[in-house]
């Protein structure tokens, strides 16, 4: 019986594969400021398909809030910035395995994320909102019965609706913002979780007066994230944010990409103080 043998052979080898990978605990070592300066390169993980945080401009060059902030940081360290594209679903893996030194990847501070990475003090606010058709009578979670809601997987919008889990709502998860927005415009979902910055962009593509902000869920604080043991490196980043806030460069960056004034933020990325403020229950 060839197939019995081949199945057994595979099962045994799979088990060995798991054991081997489990037994060897590898090294994605703690990061120090010195080692980065010595290497001469800062590897930054950023999202590259998130207007206005990180995206490519008309000439194909990467730009956006997180990208410029990363360049500012590299300049501060006196090293070269090297952007590694990450997505909201693979960024933590990229950081923990040492593919990047730091994440500036539209990453809001959440309690479960605090358990796996170390956040520096927040550098911007990010309001989570839900966007739907003009005229639909939706003001909060309770109005979502029978509504198809699209969210980008693993984002605050996803976390919020998964936690609130309104009865009768269908949650559809997509890989990124672009696909989520496209699902809304194509009529494949009735509502999407997104950010206030998306509303004018959607109007530009779908035509004005079709989609609007339905309700704000929360204000999250985005911050640099580093590997848990890299306390000294996180300290440097917090100090960097404090200096750039004081110098006015960070508020200027916010005005340029997001618009308006940068609101007050907690002065630490750790503990409950840094968690999002809930706006709608």
């Amino acid at each position: 019986m060839k197939w019995v043998e081949s199945f057994r052979r595979t099962a045994v080898a799979s088990a060995m594969f798991v054991l081997a990978t489990s037994a060897v605990a590898g090294a994605a070592a703690a990061q120090t400021v010195d080692s980065i300066k010595k290497g001469g390169v800062l590897k930054i993980g950023s999202q590259v398909s998130q207007v206005p945080w990180g995206f490519s401009d008309a000439s194909g060059k990467l730009t956006g809030f997180d990208i410029e902030l990363g360049e500012m940081l590299a300049k501060d360290l006196g090293v070269k910035a090297e952007v590694t594209p990450v997505t909201s679903s693979n960024r933590v893996a990229a950081l923990l395995t040492g593919q990047v030194d730091v994440l500036a990847a539209v990453m809001g501070i959440f309690a479960d994320r605090q358990k796996v990475v170390l956040f520096a003090r927040p550098y911007t606010t990010n309001d989570t909102i839900y966007i739907g058709k003009v005229g639909a009578d939706i003001k909060g979670w309770n109005d979502l019965k029978g509504v198809r809601v699209g969210v980008p997987r693993g984002t605050p919008q996803d976390i919020a609706i998964t936690k609130a889990a309104p009865a009768g709502a269908t949650i559809q998860r997509f890989d990124d913002d672009a696909a989520t927005v496209q699902a809304l415009i194509a009529g494949q979902v009735d509502m999407i979780g997104g950010a206030a910055t998306q509303v004018p962009n959607i109007a530009q593509v779908a035509g004005p007066g079709k989609f609007e902000q339905k309700f704000v869920v929360a204000r999250a604080y985005n911050a640099f994230a580093v590997r848990p043991a890299s306390r000294e490196w996180a300290g440097y980043l917090s100090d960097f944010v404090a200096r750039k806030l004081a110098s006015g460069e960070l508020p200027a960056l916010y005005k340029k990409w997001i618009g308006g004034e940068l609101a007050q933020m907690p002065t630490t990325g750790e503990g409950e103080a840094a968690l999002p403020i809930s706006v709608v229950q």
Binding site: V48, S49, Q50, V51, F55, S56, D57, P85, D176, D177, A178, A179, V181, Q182, I185, N201, I202, Q204, V205
Partner: peptide
């Protein structure tokens, strides 16, 4: 594919 994805998100025209 990635180039297409980057353009898709900068134009909101994935198709």
């Amino acid at each position: 594919s990635r180039a297409a994805q980057i353009i898709a998100s900068a134009t909101y025209k994935p198709l």
